[in-house]
């Protein structure tokens, strides 16, 4: 049989692999996936806070790129503050994805540089009763995810009974901030946490989280 396709580029392969990890994690909350190394991006941007440069979590930031395009509105926050649409870091994302920059309530995707910014989750769009899918998805960079020292117990669709997972180094209120976004199903924010090594878990709005 003749094949008539162009082999996918490095970036396209990264996007497909990343999406399949997100798909598996979203379908099975608490399952730890591995985001591939975004080797096509040699320079990972930084932002400055209190004169301290902060390096982006390269896995978390670039995994947003697998879903962004000209139809999507995007925003990001660090240190519990929304980053200005005109800033360098937003230009970086826009140039690579063609997405539109937006304010928090209208964003379809947000990237939170740190768990402290989870306090902003309640500002995001949870969708409407008739169109709950028009809600925001948040990517959150966290220090470490593992399954050896569980901190949370998860229940809900996609989980056989319950699933224990360890998310470390996040602010004390993190789970509260997440839970506030999902008190009114089917409205809600779907969340993806990605650690410094590219370990990833998803917390769709159906997922109930309790502290262990």
């Amino acid at each position: 049989m003749t094949t008539t396709f162009q082999p996918p580029s490095l970036f396209e392969t990264f996007c497909t692999t990343t999406f399949r990890v997100l798909l598996d994690c979203m379908a099975r909350p608490g399952t730890i996936g591995q985001i591939p190394e975004p080797s096509m991006f040699t320079q990972i941007p930084t932002i400055t806070f209190d004169n301290q440069p902060i390096l982006a979590n390269r896995f978390a930031l670039t995994s947003c790129l697998s879903l962004l395009d000209q139809e999507t509105r995007f925003a990001q926050a660090a240190n519990n503050t929304w980053i200005d649409a005109q800033s360098e870091i937003n230009r970086w994302i826009q140039l690579r994805s063609n997405c539109r920059l937006s304010d928090a309530p209208n964003a379809l995707f947000v990237y939170l540089w740190d768990s402290a910014s989870s306090a902003l989750l309640h500002e995001l769009n949870p969708g409407t009763l008739t169109f709950p899918e028009q809600s925001c998805t948040a990517f959150v960079a966290v220090p470490e995810i593992n399954d050896t020292e569980p901190t949370w117990r998860l229940r809900g669709p996609g989980i056989n009974g319950h699933c224990d997972v360890g998310v470390h180094g996040v602010v004390a209120d993190f789970v509260n901030h997440v839970n506030i976004t999902r008190t009114n199903f089917p409205l809600g924010i779907d969340i993806v946490c990605i650690d410094a090594h590219g370990k990833c878990i998803a917390l769709p709005r159906t997922c109930q989280i309790s502290l262990k």
Binding site: L22, L23, M26, S66, L67, E133, G158, D190, R205, T206
Partner: peptide
């Protein structure tokens, strides 16, 4: 892909 992820969450 975006709609598939939302479909799984709902």
């Amino acid at each position: 892909r975006r709609q598939i992820l939302k479909a799984i969450a709902l």
